[in-house]
């Protein structure tokens, strides 16, 4: 039973960490669904949101504001920054690139990544800033089922809950609102969507704003976990394999992909790590994604593409 308890602990830890990956992956899915753009800048947006949040929070607290008021103001400030970013990206980067092919847009978002990373650090500093929005202590669960129970971090539970709420909200947004339908039309074909009168620049602004807000949410959780620092941008890279497995267009897929990767890498680290040297987490997700691609080139949940000439 002890071995099984250990396994469950690793698995649960992995699944909860997976929810955190899903939080970042969600932002990608949103933008991809709405514009067909694979947004490499999502990780940089998490960094920007985190820095705006933590720096304004520290500033307000130092000025003597009560903590919770400071948190609310700081969140609003960070949201405003994300709105500004969304506008700038739409206006100056993506707007002029309407109707270009996916790879060009992808490379443009790599460019945007560097602009955001540079600007964010120049404006808000480039140190490590701790953020304390959620409790981070560990608790024991299932003490009746397993001897000694299972060690779980409260922060991971918060992350899972937030991810669940976001997914539900976004699913409703895409399926049932007029804007959501317009978003899907734009993703399918820019020119066709424009021709039926969908205001593409407004739609893109909205979607980048929503993605920015998702990045802000991700930043609150990740910032609490790792502190707000530059290495948070590598999350963007971790979200890539999540998307390969979950599919670029599926909101639930992003969650499932995140869970699979989170659980997979923790289990691999715990059970394979001792044999081939630690640090497997560093590459496990990518190699897993590569293997998935070899079997199903369109990703786990992607639709088969019928090519035409």
């Amino acid at each position: 039973m002890i071995a099984f308890g250990q396994f469950t602990e690793v698995l649960l830890g992995g699944l909860l960490a997976g929810f955190l990956y899903s939080l970042v992956a969600l932002g990608f899915v949103l933008i991809f669904k709405a514009s067909g753009v694979f947004n490499f800048a999502q990780g940089a947006m998490v960094l920007l949101a985190g820095l705006a949040l933590v720096r304004s929070l520290d500033f307000l607290v130092a000025k003597g504001f009560p903590y919770w008021i400071a948190v609310v103001i700081a969140l609003l400030f960070a949201a405003a920054i994300m709105a500004l970013t969304a506008w700038v990206i739409e206006r100056f980067v993506l707007g002029p690139l309407v109707n270009q092919d996916g790879l060009t847009l992808f490379m443009a978002t790599i460019g945007a990544t560097f602009i955001i990373e540079g600007a964010a650090q120049m404006a808000f500093g480039s140190d490590v800033y701790p953020l304390r929005l959620f409790p981070t202590d560990a608790i024991f669960m299932f003490e009746n089922t397993f001897p000694g129970g299972i060690l779980v971090n409260k922060l991971d539970l918060w992350g899972a809950a937030i991810a669940a709420v976001l997914v539900a909200g976004l699913a409703v947004f895409f399926q049932y609102t007029k804007t959501g339908r317009a978003l899907r039309a734009v993703a399918d074909d820019h020119a066709a969507a424009q021709s039926v009168g969908i205001p593409i620049s407004w739609i893109w602004f909205v979607v980048w704003l929503v993605a920015g807000l998702v990045a802000l949410v991700a930043a609150t959780v990740w910032g609490t976990k790792l502190s707000v620092q530059f290495s948070i941008t590598f999350l963007a890279l971790k979200a890539l394999p999540v998307l390969i497995i979950g599919g670029f267009t599926s909101v639930p897929g992003a969650v499932i992909g995140g869970l699979l990767i989170g659980a997979g890498e923790k289990i691999a680290e715990a059970y394979l790590g001792p044999y081939i040297g630690g640090g497997i987490e560093y590459w496990f997700a990518y190699v897993l994604a590569l293997l998935v691609l070899l079997v199903r080139p369109q990703g786990m949940f992607g639709e088969r593409i019928i090519e035409r000439v």
Binding site: G111, F114, I115, I116, E117, G118
Partner: peptide
């Protein structure tokens, strides 16, 4: 970072 990124975007456009 900023100049490189801007230039990439500019050239792509």
């Amino acid at each position: 970072f900023i100049v490189t990124g801007s230039l990439i975007c500019y050239l792509l456009i």
